[in-house]
Design a protein around this nucleic acid. Structure first.
Lengths: 336, 336
DNA sequence: ATACTAAATGTAATCGATTACATAAACTAA
DNA sequence: TTAGTTTATGTAATCGATTACATTTAGTAT
């Protein structure tokens, strides 16, 4: 393996000069630089990156902790992260936690051992205290969940107002009895989306029937099952807001199987705007999260932190928007 | 930062002994080992992994090159890779190429620079020759495309026979005029799936009408558009085999919009068995690829290679199976 | 030309764990 | 006990790029 000293010898300069040619070419005279570069070419010299990492104790690598990469929402965020990372010469180390906190703690060791220069967390399992502690010592960005009052740079959406908007949309369409299939309540995202739903209901003086709120697991099946519960009620709802698109799809399937037409007999709104929500039939009305952009933004914030920028603005809340398609009945309502 | 020499001093041993305690504890006397371990604990010593990487020139990291992590098929394979990697103490570096070959070449530099110990390629853009060259020098595993005669360890499915099976299923259901929406033909996967389709058609003496084969792009929209073409024919097909699920969904949408019932008026079979194929309506009949297992298997092969095992079996072809759901009409056919 | 400043290059220490080789300690068998 | 072995530990070189500091070279002003 050719090393820097080989290049130096052949080019008749010191290793210091070779190193400079590679890392700060502007400090080397044009002449020598050309000479060194041509020798590098000639010997096909590849710097030993591991030696560099060691010496500089930085790796140009960041760690992304994901609950589950097979979930399309996370995959898109990671896509955004990767793009921004690559564009800035950074590599992305991916860690799937499968919702196991131990894996998160293990991953944090990578930071402590300086195997990575920074970390983006898409999961929200760590305690606030731990998170704050880590964030004081290392560059860290949270993506996906807004955590009230947490002084850790975060990219998120406003889950509360977004789901309020989704619910209000149903209210505007004339629905009085609206159900909610919320996500698992250990997740703050789920709690926020539920909160937004309740706000809309209260603010519009609609009836608040606790049986109209059922907890799902963000899965198609759970959406299906909770909808069955609603349909079994004496007075079923006429509309459902599901806290993610998969559950919305499950809910729609249940409704259809029970002879209801969606949106005519049962309006449904989802959340996330995953790719398949537009392919589904009826195409889902849903809240669009800027998933890719969230990843990109998170990476950009992390880059700044790694360059030593101290953020005064800690929480970055990106815009969502209600995408009106067929499952809520708004389009047909207009036509009539 | 506490270093090994600090531990050594406090424990009254040499750094060599400390190093042994960490890397080959069985060679150290119980007594000293305990002493060293307790000092490590006391000082909260974390070894400098970068120094280790440098000295040993290995990183316990592998590189995964993915065309696009936002594609659920790839995301699942990566899920399998990550799980197997983590279980064996390896980290996963993720690189999205967005189908740009330059990115693949860049990624290969990581191998050459020993930033990673091995590589799994999910993309198939590199030339055979390059691939073989790389594979001779570094641990590499290909996942997803079987390339005839290529002497590089590969995990794949048999795309040809799988799509022949899918097509034959339609033939068994009585269809005589079957169309195919194939994938982009620069991809060998697409070519194989097309080949399998043709084999089934020829072997069953069905008419071979070149207008019944249209090239899509593995996207919903392309499936939709190609189906429109079929429907515009004087004699449209009665069944369509689409080379992936997304195109199958697009095709179904087009058929429905044109007043056809699926599967009664138009039977459709897809390929991949992505998660949403069962949520779609009608639920897709499709070829199930063992995506997660392919990732897992690829990682296992890579691990073996990295441990110096020379594989005699180069090509590993995993089983697929036809998942019969509603879009092909088989279920109803049975009932009748 | 001289003195001074700025730019370019070189010298050599450094990062911290690993490990080949050397030495010491412990054990075994007669 | 002694010689011979095995086991445990220590010494110090090593991996290869980076960089503080020293030195040389070039450039500028008088």
């Amino acid at each position: 393996m050719v090393k820097m000293s080989d290049v130096a010898k052949l080019a008749n300069v010191s290793t210091a000069t070779v190193s400079r040619v590679l890392r700060s070419p502007e400090t080397v005279k044009e002449n020598t630089r050309q000479k060194v570069l041509s020798v590098i070419e000639e010997l096909n010299y590849q710097p030993n990156i591991l030696a560099r990492h060691f010496r500089r104790s930085e790796t140009n690598t960041i760690l992304v902790i994901v609950p589950n990469i097979m979930n399309t929402v996370f995959a898109e965020i990671v896509g955004g992260i990767e793009q921004a990372a690559a564009a800035n010469g950074y590599k992305v180390l991916l860690r799937n936690t499968n919702l196991d906190v131990r894996n998160e703690y293990e991953a944090i060791d990578h930071l402590k051992q300086r195997q990575v220069d920074g970390m983006i967390l898409l999961s929200e399992r760590l305690e606030k205290k731990t998170l704050l502690e880590i964030s004081k010592q290392y560059p860290v960005v949270l993506a996906s969940a807004y955590i009230e009052g947490l002084k850790v740079p975060t990219v998120s959406i406003d889950n509360i107002s977004s789901s309020r908007e989704a619910t209000e949309h149903l209210i505007r369409l004339g629905h009085k009895r609206i159900a909610n299939i919320c996500g698992p309540l250990f997740s703050s995202i789920s709690r926020d989306r539920l909160k937004g739903f309740k706000q809309a209901v209260y603010q519009n003086d609609l009836e608040v029937d606790s049986v109209l709120i059922q907890e799902g697991e963000f899965t198609f099946d759970s959406g299906y099952n909770q909808m069955l519960k609603f349909l079994a009620l004496e007075v079923p709802p006429t509309a459902v807001f599901a806290a993610n698109d998969e559950m919305a799809m499950g809910a729609i399937k249940a409704a259809k199987e029970n002879g209801l037409k969606v949106p005519e007999d049962m309006a449904v709104v989802g959340f996330d705007n995953i790719k398949f929500s537009s392919m589904f039939e009826p195409a889902l009305t849903t809240i669009a999260q800027p998933k890719y952009e969230m990843g990109k933004k998170a990476m950009e914030l992390l880059l700044e932190q790694m360059q030593g920028v101290v953020h005064t603005k800690i929480q970055h809340v990106l815009d969502t928007n209600l995408v009106i398609r067929d499952s809520c009945g708004a389009k047909k309502a207009e036509l009539v």
